[in-house]
Design a protein around this nucleic acid. Structure first.
Lengths: 341, 341
DNA sequence: ATAATATCTGCAATCGTTTCCGTATTTTAT
DNA sequence: ATAAAATACGGAAACGATTGCAGATATTAT
């Protein structure tokens, strides 16, 4: 199939033993410079490519990282994966990318498949459905290197990378209040999610600090159907108790809100102000009116995950991944959607 | 590392030989039902997971497909990969995903890395810089299964999946003409790209049919810097010879156009109509005004690529991938950006 | 009763590397 | 001059699975 020669054939061609050739190619001190040169040039001439599986079998590592994300069509997750690839590629590592489609059953299948060692580590963000995390604890307890980002499992003692969710939720809400909002809704993906909880705490504290009280009917949990989300939001906007501000903790719900508003007589920002966690900056400024955003450092998060793993996997005797949460701050960009009139 | 037992240990536990256990697990006719049952239940109990590298080494296949795309932050490519994953995952295949970032040098590195057999096949869309395709012909000549989609290499005799680029370019242009446009600009990624050529032919033929003549200064080729693209488009819009219609053959240039228009006094669709190849439908209808789109069947394209490959790779003696171009039609959705006033 | 066949299982080679040994030759030390 | 150490290489075992071949037992046929 793949036409190249193998080590034995290369050795035969050179009239050397496979072990010598292997050592020469791996720049072993046991081999003279002269033969190293010969071996290398012949290897190039015959286009020798070491078989990755033989090597993986022998070395018990695959030079592969698995990345598990909830969805691919998302500028946030795409940028994180770009950041991961930027680093891992420098180390010659490959990336297996899996999407759970926000489905915890698929997540479990994927994680269980990965237990056989096909990848040397996993970088993941859990699905919005994930509440039972036994598949993940099992993985971690077996000593499998596991790093979380964004949607993390706080109970699993490993390294997690997030943005400053609490502060961002707090500041975002505070901004709405400063712009005159008094009834602020909170849009989320799922109550179970770590990011939801942290951002919600920030939201609550900001309300409290301003002497406002949270109202349960101003919390909307997202479902998988975009149309359903739009309708749910529209219903809220049409209710007598409608909000005058919205903090969306997810990009897709901000878009759903714009759709919902189009179906009402309300105007942003006159009747309703909105701020959202949002990664697609080019789009944010094109929305009408342009959207005030909390931008997570997606690319950096990916890079940091990968840097940590590369250190652990490529240096000889590294300690376990420390149990800590590393936060990289988001940036709030104020645009028209929250301007006080 | 990964705690599981291996075949030998499992066999020892069962007081059987590794070969019997292997056969039992692979449901060989040579093994009695009784022992099969025993083996399987013990395998589950000890959580036996076959080592993928040992198996790959032996069988000379990896159950892995490599997907090479020009960029990750793109709803089109994300959907294609989703489509691929939908199929491959049913067959137990894994996906290595690489982004070239529209850089032909990175593309070459990736392709060369893949030649060692880490993946059983490649599904790819070439970078906008790719004109020398020697790295790809070499791969194909070695018998490596290779499938192209969207941005294809016409000269490599393998199967390619595209949308009806010519017709879509033709129909899109015709639509603009019907809405009253007389000076229609064409926005593209690179002149070398197969999709550019086909869509451009459609554009030219539609102009010709309407008795309009193409003007070279109304063609804009995209660069990698978004800001530069916006400025280039703005310059065109400010020129005395400015277009009254735009056919954008790429999503990102439609967005750049919206940005550029915001920096002028022009109004869409009054002063300028625009239609674009575009995959992010949710965004298209939120743009202001909403964007008339030519939507490629991204998910289906991914599925079809994967179905073809799965057939070739999992059935015993399959022929080579036939040299043909399979076209799956796009769909034009008319929105406000091309409405005649 | 003996041969032939069917049924089940084990031995050992194989895939392509890496690496622990061992060994032959050369260099350095005493 | 002889021992010790350094240098350069080859042989063979491993990694963990699959599978051709052969052997053992049980069943059936003659």
């Amino acid at each position: 199939m793949s036409a190249g020669v193998n080590l034995k054939e290369l050795a035969a061609e050179l009239k050397l033993s496979p072990s010598t050739v292997s050592r020469a190619l791996n720049d072993s001190y046991e081999i003279s410079e002269a033969t190293k040169k010969k071996v290398i040039s012949m290897a190039e001439k015959l286009n020798y490519q070491p078989n990755p599986f033989a090597r993986s079998l022998r070395e018990n590592k695959s030079k592969t990282i698995a990345v598990v994300i909830p969805e691919r069509i998302s500028s946030f997750f795409s940028k994180v994966v770009d950041g991961i690839e930027e680093i891992t590629q420098q180390y010659g590592y490959h990336l297996l990318v899996y999407s759970t489609h926000e489905d915890v059953d698929r997540e479990k299948k994927i994680v269980n498949l990965l237990m056989n060692g096909r990848a040397d580590a996993i970088i993941m963000s859990v699905s919005s459905q994930t509440s039972d995390i036994s598949h993940l604890t099992r993985l971690h307890e077996r000593g499998f290197p596991l790093v979380f980002f964004d949607r993390i499992c706080p109970d699993i003692p490993t390294t997690k990378f997030i943005t400053n969710d609490y502060e961002s939720g707090f500041e975002g809400t505070k901004h709405l209040i400063q712009q005159g909002c008094r009834k602020i809704a909170f849009l989320m993906l799922s109550k179970e999610l770590s990011i939801t909880k942290d951002r919600y705490r920030g939201y609550l504290d900001a309300l409290r600090q301003a002497g406002l009280s949270p109202e349960p009917q101003l919390n909307i949990t997202c479902c998988q159907e975009e149309e359903q989300n739009i309708e749910d939001i529209r219903q809220m906007l049409l209710s007598p108790n409608r909000p005058d501000g919205i903090l969306s903790s997810v990009e897709k719900l901000a878009l759903a809100t714009y759709h919902a508003v189009k179906r009402t007589d309300l105007k942003i920002p006159q009747d309703l102000k909105i701020i959202s966690f949002f990664s697609n900056l080019s789009i944010a400024s094109l929305l009408h009116p342009s959207l005030t955003t909390i931008t997570q450092p997606a690319f950096s998060i990916g890079e940091e995950c990968a840097k940590l793993l590369m250190k652990k996997l490529t240096k000889p005797r590294q300690p376990d991944l420390p149990n800590q949460v590393i936060s990289i701050p988001s940036k709030i960009t104020i645009r028209s959607s929250t301007i006080a009139i």
